Simulated assay, not measured.
Amino acid sequence: MRHVKAVAALAVVGAVALATPANASTALASRLTLSITPESSTGGPGRTVTLICEPTGGTHPDAAAACADLIKANGDIKRIPPAKGNCLPVEIRVIAKAFGNWQGRQVSYSQSFTNDCYANLGTGGHVFHF
Rank of each mutant, 00 (worst) to 15 (best):
A27C: 01
M1V: 01
S112H: 02
L10E: 04
N115F: 09
P89E: 04
Y109Q: 06
P55S: 02
R79P: 08
V4A: 11
A64V: 12
G124V: 08
Y109C: 08
G122D: 11
C87V: 11
A17L: 15
T37Y: 05
I77R: 06
R79F: 14
L10V: 14
A68K: 01
G58N: 05
V49Q: 12
A27Y: 00
C117E: 07
A19W: 00
L18K: 00
T56I: 15
E91L: 12
P45G: 06
A119F: 07
R2F: 13
A68Q: 02
L32S: 05
R47P: 05
P45I: 02
G104S: 04
A66F: 02
F99I: 03
R105F: 08
P38H: 06
E54R: 03
Y109L: 06
A68I: 02
V12W: 00
E39P: 01
V13K: 07
R2I: 11
S41M: 13
P61Y: 03
H60R: 11
A73G: 14
G100P: 14
C53G: 04
H3I: 13
A22W: 04
A8F: 08
G46Q: 05
S110N: 09
V7N: 01
A8V: 10
G100M: 10
G43D: 13
T20K: 02
V16C: 11
A17R: 01
K84G: 15
P89F: 08
Q111T: 06
P89C: 02
G46V: 14
G57H: 01
H3V: 10
A98H: 01
G46D: 06
F99A: 10
D76P: 04
W102C: 08
A19R: 00
N115Y: 11
T50Q: 06
A73C: 15
V7F: 04
T59S: 15
T37I: 12
A8P: 03
V7K: 02
G104C: 06
R79H: 13
Y109R: 07
Y109H: 11
G14H: 10
D76K: 10
A15E: 09
A9Y: 08
F99K: 09
K78R: 12
P61S: 08
P21F: 09
D76S: 15
Q111I: 04
G124H: 05
A29H: 01
G57M: 04
G124P: 10
E54K: 05
G100D: 09
H126T: 07
S112F: 00
L32M: 06
T59W: 03
A96L: 12
I95W: 00
L34A: 11
G44P: 09
C67G: 04
K84A: 14
T42A: 12
A8T: 10
P81C: 10
V127N: 05
